[in-house]
Design a protein around this nucleic acid. Sequence first.
RNA 1: GCCGGGAUAGCUCAGUCGGUAGAGCAGCUCACUCGUAAUGAGCAGGCCCGGGGUUCGAGUCCCCGUCCCGGCUCCA
Length: 661
Amino acid sequence: MDDDDITITLPDGSTREYAKGVTPLDVAASIGSRLAKAAIAATIDGEEVDLDRPIDHDATVAVITPTTPEGREVLRHSTAHVLAQAVTDLFPGARYAIGPAIQDGFYYDFELPGGQRFTDQDLERIEARMREIVAADQRFVREELDRDEGLTRFADQPFKQEIIERVDRSEVGSGAVISVYRNPRDGAADFLDLCRGPHVPRTSRLGAFKLMRVAGAYWRGDEHGPVLQRIYGTAWETPAALAEHLHRLEEAERRDHRRLGAELDLFSFPEEIGSGLPVFHPKGGTVRAIMEEYSRRRHEAAGYSFVNTPHITKANLFETSGHLQWFAEGMFPPMLVDEGPGEGTPYYLKPMNCPFHCLIYQSRIRSYRELPLRLFEFGTVYRYERSGVVHGLTRVRGLTQDDAHIFCTREQMGAELRSLLVFVLELLRDFGLEHFELELSTKPPGKAIGSDADWDAATEELRAVAQDMGLEPVLDEGGGAFYGPKISVQARDAIGRSWQLSTIQLDFQEPGPEHFDLHYIGADNERHTPVMIHRALFGAVERFFAILLEHYAGAFPAWLAPVQVSVLPVADRHHAYAFRIADRLRAEGFRVELLDAHDDTLGARVGRAKRDKVPYVLVVGDEDADNGTVGVNGRGSDHPERGVPVDAFIERLAEEVAERR
RNA sequence: GCCGGGAUAGCUCAGUCGGUAGAGCAGCUCACUCGUAAUGAGCAGGCCCGGGGUUCGAGUCCCCGUCCCGGCUCCA
């Protein structure tokens, strides 16, 4: 064996000998021309590199192809470079900041001279320029520079300089070397960008891309730093994959709860009331009432007691709870009551229910015999969300939590958490959600009270409970509240999006037990501090409503649908029969509407009922009136069933509702 | 809160250069009485988001506010 030979291990474990200096592309080519053709980057001993990186030692080598997550990232990041080149071409003096690959695509942040703004027309021009760059088939050439040379090469790019300086600081003593990528081009200076890489070898190897939108973004995410203009794009390995992605976006838009809410007449946000303050219309109110009613029934069965508390309170209560100290900026400003010569008494809208529930606990001496005490309320709270973050029903300023606080002993805590988690998942499943992920948030360093030992024990308890249910929680290090760890439940909807719903928050410090001096008398006749568990299963009813609406794309299952059955007489002479059918169904407890034949053709009425996503449309005509039957049109079926006996239909619907299908 | 874009009939939207407001759908009325996704005709519908300014004249231009949209930041 020659001294200049090295041994390359392939992903399948086999090994081959190559001359020193061989590149991953050479290796791929020696295995198969198809593989070499597909490759856009490679890994050497797990490190992502360009295809032409020479290999000078024994190593494991694999190529990266565009259809893998790593491959898409290379494509997207390379596309971002081309975007930056196009922008600097079209906007002389533009400064470019950072341009990473993100989920589904990439972005690049820019600052234009003279405060110029990108317009939608600019996006089209930029995209056209990008296609020219792709057609020119420029190479991506990697170079390594030392710090000073980097600063010189990016003399007119302050953001790049700042990054270089930062890299230098963070790698002190390691002989900092920065890498840049150069796109050589005819008749113009090379385009240069600071970058770790790897990249596709040539611009012609990019996939299908599209610029999406422009938006403002802070330099390095710093609210007080300069605001840059961010151009978002999406990039995929093939035009088909891009089309599929765009289709998914359309699907998400079609399901947007704000759009469905208006179309189906469920809720609205009157400008007169204020931002983030929804009103529910009769149909939305019906769905919501059913959700709440079902939840109430389940809580009753699970041993909860129902309480009610006011929406406003004197400031004093939130001083005791610590909210005014910690979260005043998230609360609506106070109103002064009984103003006179004095300063008046400040009252606040409540941002949380727990202090009220603590007062109920505290209203008399508690015995260990009455624990666990579970206090439940649909509690409406008000939070002063910053104006830019309000969004439909998912981020509002007035919301109703399905909130409960469980007071129990340390000994009871484990069992209580265990049954609680079962309860949560069962309830969410009943509403049609099936895929869950748990997130465990631990002690926030420097911002928490209580001993590490207490925290560790409580955190471990939560983890054990999750694992008992076969769910491995994802760790959210330092994400807990200052008074205790929490476990949150994320659910995936019908199109795979993940939503955070339930939270279970342990509180063995404050603002619960110790601030309020909560205690109970134990079997030993001594005073003990209870553990308090904060928990909300829907999270907020409004938000959960929105998630269900999007999950079902507006087609609520029969048990939740605001109108379950539309009855349509074929002609006026069938009206009396249709009325009897509707009446009968109402008597059975169903929600029914009758669309009479006076104004519209049958086709028009069927269309209306279908667009309203009513689960069952019953058409009744001569045949039915004679035989006591109905014509049944199930939602989603193109084939009406004729001559179904009324009793049979009622039985079917009742079963469907009972099973919450 | 910050950056950008918006707000015209119940909804979706058009409205040219600053010259006195338009369509489709929905609504109402009438006709049609129909077996499965939009029957026809007619009528009505407007503080052009609110306030100020420029102008002979403002839906249109400028300023302030409200609300919405896309991001950023935030999300107990």
